[in-house]
Design a protein around this nucleic acid. Structure first.
Length: 264
DNA sequence: CCTATAGCCTGACGGC
DNA sequence: TGCCGTCAGGCTATAG
């Protein structure tokens, strides 16, 4: 689930639910999701403290504690936060559970446990350590910056969009949507794109991601000109009705419309 | 520098 | 119903 729009929706969800409550308890149902941090350290760092603010970089969500430290939340392919009151609403795949003084709980849910939770002192150092590129929705990431990042890149355009070291936030699903909107085949080589195509991709990128955030990252609310609700075997292009095709790019499934995006 | 592959984990889904 | 293969919105290490 979690690409940039999903994580941004998670961020706003935490902002409206989980800030400024004293953390009274931390339960660790599955320590596999803990990265560098031990169970003891996680408890010690959170208990008695509260979340003050949140930040996001690409697909990473950070919650700032009143101690000055940060809890990093990454959700892998299947995960989300869930705020709830009664334990009978506890989500099925919660791996961590934070309890607040107001009686509510925040669960870190992750079915496949591919995500990771850790504690940090320095956000900047974390981003640099992971060698993450700029967040694609950051205002400073404009067309010029986009072109610069792709300058000299020789790979396929879908791979480049998904490469978190080049730019952070886009994953498998949204890269398909961006390229569908731009009318460009996912296997197109970056160095074969002309200026106009780069402009189309950039524009599609900002539009698609902002639209998705506006619609709560819920595909059911997406415009009917979007391919996302149709990107599965047997799906049809919302514009021309052609059956969507699937090819492998960087080991992931790319879906595209052969009419709109052509064949390489 | 770039691609493909496997692995990490736990399912959901379709076919027989 | 059960078993099996395939696929799944991420990331990393490895080999070529």
């Amino acid at each position: 689930m979690p690409e940039l729009p999903d994580v941004e929706v998670f961020k706003r969800y935490l902002d409206s639910t989980s800030l400024h409550h004293r953390i009274t308890d931390v339960q660790i149902q599955s320590s596999q999701v803990l990265g560098d941090v031990s169970e003891q350290d996680l408890r010690a760092d959170l208990k008695g403290h509260e979340f003050e603010c949140t930040k996001r970089h690409g697909k990473y969500l950070f919650t700032g504690l009143d101690s000055g430290r940060w809890l990093v939340l990454h959700f892998g392919m299947t995960g989300n936060p869930k705020y709830f009151k009664d334990m009978d609403q506890e989500p099925q795949y919660d791996r961590l559970l934070f309890s607040f003084a107001n009686g509510y709980h925040l669960a870190y849910q992750s079915r496949r446990k591919l995500g990771e939770v850790a504690l940090l002192d320095d956000l900047q150092a974390f981003v640099e350590g992971k060698e993450l590129g700029p967040d694609v929705l950051d205002e400073s990431f404009d067309l010029q910056a986009f072109k610069k990042v792709l300058q000299g890149h020789r790979g396929m355009v879908k791979s480049a969009l998904m490469n978190q070291q080049l730019m952070a936030g886009i994953g498998n699903v949204y890269s398909d949507e961006i390229l569908f909107q731009a009318g460009i085949h996912p296997r197109t080589k970056v160095n074969q794109l002309d200026d106009e195509q780069l402009g189309e991709i950039f524009k599609g990128m900002k539009e698609v991601l902002n639209m998705a955030i506006d619609r709560q990252a819920d595909p059911q609310q997406f415009p009917d000109t979007y391919i996302i609700p149709h990107r599965h075997q047997g799906g049809t292009c919302p514009c021309c009705g052609a059956e969507v095709r699937r090819v492998k790019v960087s080991g992931r499934s790319a879906y595209y419309c052969p009419n709109r995006q052509g064949e390489p």
